[in-house]
Amino acid sequence: MSVTLSPRGASAEITDFDAAASCFAIDGLSLAYDGRPALRDLTLAIPRHAVTAFIGPSGCGKSTLLRALNRLHDLDDTVGRAGRIRLEGQDIHAPDVDVAELRRRVGMVFQTPNPFPMSIYDNVAFGLRLQGIKRKRTLDEVIEWALVSAALWDEVKDQLHTSAWRLSGGQQQRLVIARTLAVQPEVLLLDEPASALDPISTLKIEELIRSLKSRLTLVLVTHNMQQAARVSDYTAFLHDGELVEYGATDSLFTNPRLARTENYITGRMS
């Protein structure tokens, strides 16, 4: 499938990270839905053990970029792609890559909380059982650990075997995070994880994101500028499928290099 590549390689100069410190290295990534470009020639590196935020107006391609990182686009055969994505130096599109294994390493949390229609316990055990882990003792231990890590244990420890759909939206989202953590991913992708939640639940999720940084690499999509400023270490501003500006969150928010970025973060452009 042909992909319209952006003539301007505007993003190349913004990769100011050491390749060795980066978890994902995205190189000239372009992506199109049914011939309509959604990402244009993106090049950026995502640093390990940090929170990287993708911001930008709705429809600019944040989710598309995120879903490219765990190859969720594979399901949709109208998607065309050019460019390379490397995870820890390995091309994720190489023929010998096991997609299921890649997705286990790169966990993902979606905008709508999506617990399965099973008990809380079975939800967290889902990924483990996929790996063939059946021993009750092991499962119990990992599930407790994951729920503790997702700051949900205290709220659900007495109702592990009730339906996950009984939980509140915020609890469901933390359950989904616990479910993802249980399979010990290296990267956690979060696509507007708090946009469907109330302010208190949002704060809990943000706290959780910060606390997870020491263990894994996080990539957060958000349309909420304050949220990006509060939790992320690095921020990438996308607009219309292009990477406009990318850098440390502090400098990007206090001292944006480009006028487009400044306009967006000060709210003159939505």
Partner: peptide, 8 residues
């Protein structure tokens, strides 16, 4: 997608 994202 939730299941796929867990490596199913």
């Amino acid at each position: 997608e939730g299941a796929l994202a867990l490596g199913a």
